[in-house]
Design a protein around this nucleic acid. Sequence first.
DNA 1: AACTCGGGGCA
DNA 2: TGCCCAGAGTT
Length: 220
Amino acid sequence: MLTNKQVSEAVTMIGEMFPDAECELHHSNPFELLIAVVLSAQCTDALVNKVTPDLFNKYKTPEDYVEVSQEELEQDIRSIGLYRNKAKNIKKLSKSLIEQYNGEVPESKEELMELAGVGRKTANVVASVAFGVPAIAVDTHVERVSKRLGICRWKDNVREVENTLMKKVPKEEWSVTHHRLIFFGRYHCKAQSPQCPVCPLLDMCREGKKRMKKRQAAME
DNA sequence: AACTCGGGGCA
DNA sequence: TGCCCAGAGTT
């Protein structure tokens, strides 16, 4: 397991690899971000960014989503997949916003997680990106790189990965940490093709060293 | 813990 | 054309 000092070194090095790591979803306010992150479940941000310009041009407020028919909303987000669930969740979530929060997006992770279609990851992204709440969103990228590097244990569940990251990274760096780990996982430490031979973190990476050793053995 | 929802993108 | 992508809800 990496020490706190090693984790902080790793995060710094990843920061140098991705100096402008930040939320890639198009949005201009907390409500749009919330919708974009809900839509992004189980699909790529790039795909979500293809539908949001038209979507946000058509729907400005929670009322707009409540008033539209389920079928019409489904058609508007059809290309991202899982569209029936997502359309249903967005209508339900919009209704909750109107009834419980005067049409505004709540700022706490706990309140966000009560909303339809909003789980741990989505709540953390919205809270941290839109409201500056300290949080580390653990998606599959963050989970994978945390396990490969040895920040946490292989058998840890999402909650444990999140807790370990929060323990090992100073609170004021949580938001940069989660964006950097996401970029690192998405573009470099990819699920099927980690770029170990050219990785600046190889020396401290548990999985990377194992893979390189295997590679070496295969060469001989 | 396992299962379901799903079309886009790439090889 | 088949595999990979990537969370939340339900049972």
